[in-house]
Design a binder for these strands. Structure first.
Length: 507
RNA sequence: GAAUCGGUAGCUCAGCUGGUAGAGCAGCGGCCUUUUAAGCCGCGGGUCGAGGGUUCGAGCCCCUCCCGAUUCACCA
């Protein structure tokens, strides 16, 4: 919209006219500052601020957006919203002046405008804590009308919403508006941040080092996924946006750090869904001299702590379920879990036997699907959706885990676990493969899968091999999906509800 | 990528078997000095997602396309 005046709505035109009128009245519609003494929440929660008479009260100074207005001639109530909440303001012509009240407040202020109020705190007849305005300052004009949702408590004590800003497309595309008018959205994102902070503190207290590794990578690796491709002009070379940061973090373990972690935006060129956004966040952690059993213990402790810090309890309501993060979480070997749900025991089975079992279970098998992938399909179909409470699934087939160490005792398996919760994977971890000869062989197997048509199979990373050839200590590594975990911790149905700006097609 | 549902005023929605578009909130003009979905009187506001077709006439029927939600498929 290159904004010819005719394309503006009536309300936008009127607001632009008011903007000019403010200037003509000698009022700067966009002043630079205002001294705030209190937030709405402080005022509402501190009875000491309430004064019986105008003279006795201490003064407060608040600022925010005008959200509702009730004009009753020479006096009005309106509410302003600041970063902590909403508070009501009472303003009278005889307190702030005829000009300020009649011309500015009543005629030129709209819902959505920023204002500053100085005054004292009192309680109205109906008991609502309210700021009685003595000074009114204009702080910023909004020229586009904000949605005007209303909430009211009915006789049954239920909150009824009117005119909620509920169109999901508009909410995702105009998150700024969503945040202004839907307080729940704000809470969700605050929880997400608190979740990350809890994890960061937890890892810092363990002495692990937060690091940053490349997002633009000449060779992508560390996961099975299709990448985004880009190009560096000066070097005239292709680059990939990382799909994981595993291989770089392990290079740092080689370099002598005993514990490193990174909260990383990763990028996978896949479809969009309720559970998938092309860019997403995970935290990866690598700790030297530990194995995957230790890591299960670590994860339980950390996530239990997250639940407690967000909800004050290990129990979290998610959809129809109550999920309890209290440790210890059950640990079930993958093949045992599959046997329990399907009756088929996969231990020691050949590729052909597994493929025929999969067919008997109506698993869709495609050309180039390796044994590991087929087993993963069976697991994803029959087991994963049933795991609501947090559960560790352990000991994965070697074919689907090219970076994990072979199992100490179980042939054909690796020391790997996934944490499953609410029917979805939230973490993936293993005892890291540090045998460079074995690692090279696994990469070569991946290269073979790739040439057989699996475009998600890994490519050989010679520099990574060189690194671990210099020697890597035994190491446990984990990746935890931050978005998925945030969905659970905030009871959100879609990944878009825990991303400020989910990817959308252009308008 | 497939299926289903949806897109009408700034927001939330109604719109019958096809007959020239409505409500509440928001806005504008009034009245109103403790209201709270404030109230009362009056008024304005629309490329009905886009384009084509059928028809005397299309928000509504048909076709194509765009955008979204949900489910499925792939993936974390």
């Amino acid at each position: 919209m290159s904004n010819p005046e005719s394309s503006l709505s009536e309300q936008q035109q009127i607001r632009l006219e008011k903007l000019e009128e403010l200037r003509e009245q000698g009022i700067n519609p966009f002043p630079t500052k205002f001294d705030v003494s209190h937030y709405s929440k402080q005022i509402l929660s501190d009875d000491n601020l309430i004064s019986e008479t105008q003279e006795s009260g201490s003064r407060v100074s608040i600022a925010g957006r005008v959200m509702t207005r009730r004009i009753m001639g020479k006096a009005s109530f309106f509410t302003i919203q600041d970063s902590e909440g909403i508070i009501q303001v009472y303003i009278r012509r005889d307190d702030v002046g005829v000009e300020e009240y009649n011309t500015i407040f009543k005629k030129l202020v709209d819902i959505g405008d920023f204002v500053g109020i100085k005054g004292f705190v009192f309680k109205t007849r109906t008991g609502e804590i309210t700021v009685h305005a003595e000074e009114f300052t204009f702080l910023g004009k909004t020229v586009r009308p904000l949605p005007t949702p209303k909430e009211v408590e009915n006789e049954a004590g239920e909150i009824v919403k009117y005119d909620a800003f509920s169109d999901k497309e508009l909410r995702y595309r105009q998150r700024y508006v969503d945040l202004v008018v839907n307080p729940d959205v704000r809470d969700t994102f605050i929880k997400r941040t608190k979740m990350v902070q809890t994890m960061r503190n937890f890892m810092n207290e363990c002495g692990y080092l937060e690091v940053e590794t490349p997002i633009l990578q000449p060779i992508y690796g560390g996961a099975a996924a299709r990448p985004f491709t880009t190009h560096h002009n000066a070097l005239d070379m292709p680059l990939y946006l990382r799909i994981a940061n595993e291989l770089y973090l392990k290079r740092l373990i080689v370099g002598g750090f005993d514990g490193v972690y990174e909260f990383s935006k990763d990028f996978r060129n896949e479809g969009l869904s309720r559970f998938h956004n092309p860019e997403f966040t995970q935290v990866e952690l690598y700790v030297a001299y530990k194995d995957y059993n230790w890591m299960m213990d670590f994860m339980e402790k950390m996530i239990e702590q997250v639940a407690i810090s967000l909800h004050g309890s290990t129990r979290v309501n998610v959809g129809v379920h109550e999920i309890d993060f209290k440790r210890p979480w059950p640990k079930i070997p993958m093949y045992d879990a599959i046997e329990k749900e399907t009756g088929h025991n996969l231990y020691g089975k050949t590729d052909e036997e597994i493929e025929s079992i999969a067919r008997s279970l109506d698993i869709h098998i495609e050309e180039g699907m390796g044994k590991g992938k087929i087993i993963d399909e069976i697991f994803g179909e029959f087991v994963e959706p049933k795991l609501i409470q947090p559960t560790f699934i352990t000991d994965y087939p070697i074919e689907m885990s090219p970076l994990a160490k072979k199992h100490g005792t179980k042939e054909g398996l690796v020391e790997r676990f996934e944490a499953i919760c609410n029917g979805k994977e939230i973490a993936n971890a293993f005892s890291e493969l540090n045998d460079p000869v074995d690692q090279r062989k696994r990469f070569e197997d991946q290269a073979r899968l790739r040439s057989d048509g699996d475009d998600e199979a890994m490519t050989i990373d010679e520099d990574f091999l060189r690194a671990i050839e210099y020697g890597m200590p035994p190491t446990a590594g984990i990746g935890i999906g931050i978005d998925r975990l945030a969905m659970i911790m905030t009871n959100s149905e879609s990944i878009r509800d825990v991303l400020f700006f989910p990817l959308m097609r252009p308008e």
